[in-house]
Simulated assay, not measured.
Amino acid sequence: MSERDHLVVRQASKRYGATTVLDRVDLSIRRGELVTLLGPSGCGKTTLLRLIAGLALPDTGSVSIAGRDVTRVPPHKRNVGVVFQNYALFPHLSVAGNVAFGLNVRRRPKAEVRAAVEKALALVHLGHLAERPISALSGGQQQRVALARALAVEPDVLLFDEALSALDRKLREEMQGEMRRMLRDIDATAIFVTHDQDEALTMSDRVAVMNGGRIEQLAEPRLIYERPASLFTLNFVGLSTRIPGTVVSEDNGTVEVDTPVGRLVATGGFIPGSRVIVATRPEHLRPATGDEGNAVNGRVRSIVFQGSRSLVEVGAGGETLLAELPGQEAAHLAPDAEIRLGWPVRETFAFPAPELSTPELAA
């Protein structure tokens, strides 16, 4: 634990019956940092959030906030703000009444509550709607009220449990940028839970990719995408081309791999005979010019227009390659056309091939 660590989870485990939901999770978050817990349903991300909020207790491990061990401290004494997926607003209270709720529960003086409510509503630009009933607000405005209620208690940590998922796509994208700016302006320490990779990459200082009750990788969004530490992270975040093969040689951090599309070179350290998956991202594939480290002959299967770029699916050796090509490069292509694609070795990764049997996922 460093001096800058504000929230620290150490070796936290949680089981429900025979199912391990969290398996010895370690997580350290700095003050003022925005971290997203990203993963599919059942990976343990919401359970980890509940442990931090005090809504569940770990079977083993600890949780500390601002240097204080809160593992057994009840939720209302942790000074943690939570914004839920359904916002959990009280329909019989006004906007101001909802924002004041947590402060009233803490028995703060009326003058202090009034000032805190005004400040929180000003932060979310809803001061002019203080007396309006919740039922008269749009989805985006209700989301702001939920955020203002969490901010009003001046929490040590803000927790967001799928807080934007109820909004339509356009409003969700607008709120992502607005919330990120707002939280940075007040130097908030925040944790987001989401299964939406775009939201995670947009909002976060760092992303924790979770799988089967563990954190697969914790890194800045760009590193999560460009340098995935595992095959699961590669598959879950963004599109990719994945080709199975067998390592034939290894030299100083690169391997040569025999695959159904030919011999490929990738970064990685594996002994000859290892079964691996060779992978790369679609934007690295281009019509080959002869200068690439890897090149494959194939036939165009489909072309999906995406504005300034097109996603081209190419079949080769029974495998599928995905190339994201600029409009001009894709314009002359047609389904069933022959094409040779190339991409650099430095953008080619080798991962251990998954076992035939799949371990049970956490619920």
Score class of each variant (00 low, 15 high):
340 R>P: 09
99 V>F: 02
217 Q>D: 10
91 P>E: 14
58 P>S: 05
46 T>H: 09
78 R>L: 02
302 S>D: 15
34 L>I: 15
316 A>D: 00
273 G>Y: 05
342 G>N: 04
126 L>Y: 03
91 P>I: 14
72 R>S: 08
301 R>H: 11
319 E>T: 03
315 G>I: 09
27 L>P: 08
105 V>K: 09
59 D>A: 11
77 K>A: 01
22 L>Y: 06
101 F>A: 10
180 R>E: 12
189 T>F: 06
110 K>W: 08
36 T>D: 01
164 L>T: 06
269 G>M: 09
153 V>W: 03
199 E>T: 14
244 P>A: 02
248 V>K: 14
149 R>H: 02
193 V>M: 03
334 A>K: 01
336 D>T: 06
249 S>H: 10
26 D>K: 01
16 Y>Q: 01
287 P>D: 07
247 V>I: 02
203 M>F: 03
216 E>Q: 14
255 V>K: 00
251 D>T: 15
196 D>K: 00
196 D>Q: 04
1 M>N: 11
35 V>W: 08
30 R>N: 11
344 P>G: 06
47 T>K: 02
208 A>N: 05
83 V>N: 01
196 D>Y: 01
280 T>E: 04
358 T>V: 15
134 I>H: 04
285 L>S: 05
209 V>A: 05
245 G>Q: 06
254 T>A: 03
268 G>H: 12
29 I>E: 03
135 S>V: 13
339 I>E: 04
339 I>N: 07
231 L>N: 02
299 R>V: 14
43 C>F: 10
329 E>N: 09
157 V>K: 12
113 V>I: 15
257 V>H: 01
140 G>S: 02
307 G>Q: 06
24 R>A: 15
338 E>F: 09
260 P>A: 05
127 G>T: 08
118 E>K: 12
304 V>N: 12
316 A>H: 04
362 A>Y: 02
59 D>S: 14
253 G>N: 10
285 L>D: 12
108 R>S: 07
242 R>A: 05
301 R>M: 14
